[in-house]
Design a protein around this nucleic acid. Structure first.
Lengths: 191, 191
DNA sequence: AAAAACGTTAAAAAATAATTTAACAAAATT
DNA sequence: AATTTTGTTAAATTATTTTTTAACGTTTTT
C-alpha cells in the first residue's frame, strides 16, 4: 500500500524528468549536437551531484569511451565542467544548469568563431577583388561583378562586426539590460 | 597578352568567392547544416540572378534530386526563396543575402521552436512534480528531489520566455536599437 | 613491486546519413 | 494526343558518423 504510493511518485518524477530530458536533447539536435551527447547533457541537468564516467555509462547504458568523448565535447562547448571533490579519484563532471550561461557559451562561442572565421576570409576576398578593380583593360562585366561582390562583402563584414558586439553584450551580461530576465514564476500567480 | 590578364582577373575573382564560400559553408556546418547544403547556400550567395536546379547541379557537380532536397531545406530555414520570372518554366531560387535577415530566420525560427517545445514539456513536468509534492506519506528524499526539480525548471521556464522575447526583438528589428548596425566600410577610412 | 582502477586512444563494427540512379507524376510543348 | 520537360519520390548505394571492443599508459592501492 505504502510501497504502491511510493512507486507511483517515483514514476511521476521519472516521467517528468524524462519529458524534459527528451525535449532538451531534441533542442540540442536542432543545432547540430548529436542525440546521445544531447541526452547526456540533459541527463546531467537533473543531477544535483557531480557524475563520474561510470555514472553516465549506467544512466545512458553506453560504453565508457563513448561517455569519455561525449563529455569532452560538452566541455568543449563549455556547458559541462570538470569538478574536484576530495575522496573520489574518478573524474567528476557537473552540467551548467543556468541556461543563460548555457546560451552565452553555446551561441556566444560559436558566433565568436563565426565572426573571426568569416572576417578573415571576407578581408582576403575583398583584397583580391580590389586587385581586379585596379587592373587595367579588364572586361567590363567582370569588373562589375567584382564591384558587386565587394559591395555585398562589405555588408557581410558589417554583420560580422555586429555579431562580435552581440557576443560582447551577451558575455558581459549587458544584453540583460535591454532584455531583462523576468521571473514568470507561477507561484505568484496562484496567490 | 590581353587574354592572360583577363584570365588572371577571373582567377582572382573566383579565388575570392571560393574563399568566402568555404568559410560560409564551414560556419553553417558549425550549427548542424550539412556541408553540401551549406555550400549550396554559399554558392547562391554570390549569384545575382535566380538559379534553377540545373544551375545548382552544374555549379556543385551534384545530382538534381540532391539539389531539390537541399534547396528545400534552405527554404525550410527561410534563407532561400522561390522566385518567379516570366519566361522560364523552371523553378527559380534566390538566396537571402542580407545576413541580418539570415540571422533572424536561422536563429529566430529555431529559438522560437526551442522555446515552444521546451515550455510545453517543462509545464507538463512541473505539473507531474507538483502532483508528487501533493501526495501524502511520500519519502522525504523524493519530495526534496521533486522540489529541487521544480525550482530548476521554473528557472528554465524563465529562460524560455526570455528566448521568446529575444526572438520578438530580433524579428521586429527592435534589437538594432540596442545593438545598432554600424557601417564599418573601409572606404571611409581611406579618405 | 604487483595488481587494480581509471581514462584515453585505436581499430573494428554498427548505425545513420547523404547521394545517386531509376521510376514516376504533373505540366508544358509540339 | 503524343512527347518532352520538370521536379519529386523511392530504392539502392556510398560515405560518414557513431559506438563498441580491445589495447594501452598512468596513477593509485595493496
Amino acid at each position: 500500500m505504502e510501497d504502491e504510493k511510493q512507486q507511483k511518485a517515483e514514476e511521476l518524477l521519472e516521467d517528468a524528468e524524462r519529458l524534459v530530458i527528451d525535449s532538451i536533447a531534441e533542442t540540442m539536435d536542432l543545432y547540430g549536437v548529436t542525440p546521445s551527447i544531447g541526452r547526456l547533457y540533459a541527463t546531467m541537468y537533473f543531477k544535483h551531484d557531480p557524475l563520474t564516467l561510470d555514472d553516465m555509462k549506467n544512466d545512458l547504458g553506453m560504453s565508457k569511451p563513448s561517455m569519455s568523448t561525449a563529455v569532452r565535447k560538452l566541455q568543449d562547448i563549455n556547458i559541462v565542467k570538470k569538478v574536484w571533490r576530495r575522496g573520489s579519484r574518478k573524474d567528476l563532471f557537473m552540467a551548467e544548469k543556468n541556461f543563460f550561461q548555457y546560451f552565452s557559451h553555446f551561441f556566444g562561442d560559436k558566433w565568436e568563431r563565426e565572426a573571426k572565421l568569416n572576417l578573415s576570409s571576407i578581408n582576403d576576398a575583398i583584397e583580391k577583388l580590389q586587385e581586379v578593380l585596379n587592373m587595367e583593360e579588364i572586361d567590363v562585366e567582370m569588373k562589375r561583378r567584382a564591384e558587386q561582390d565587394i559591395q555585398q562583402l562589405t555588408e557581410y563584414r558589417n554583420y560580422c562586426h555586429w555579431l562580435e558586439r552581440l557576443v560582447e553584450s551577451v558575455e558581459s551580461g549587458e544584453i540583460f539590460e535591454f532584455l531583462p530576465i523576468e521571473d514568470t514564476d507561477s507561484k505568484r500567480d496562484e496567490s
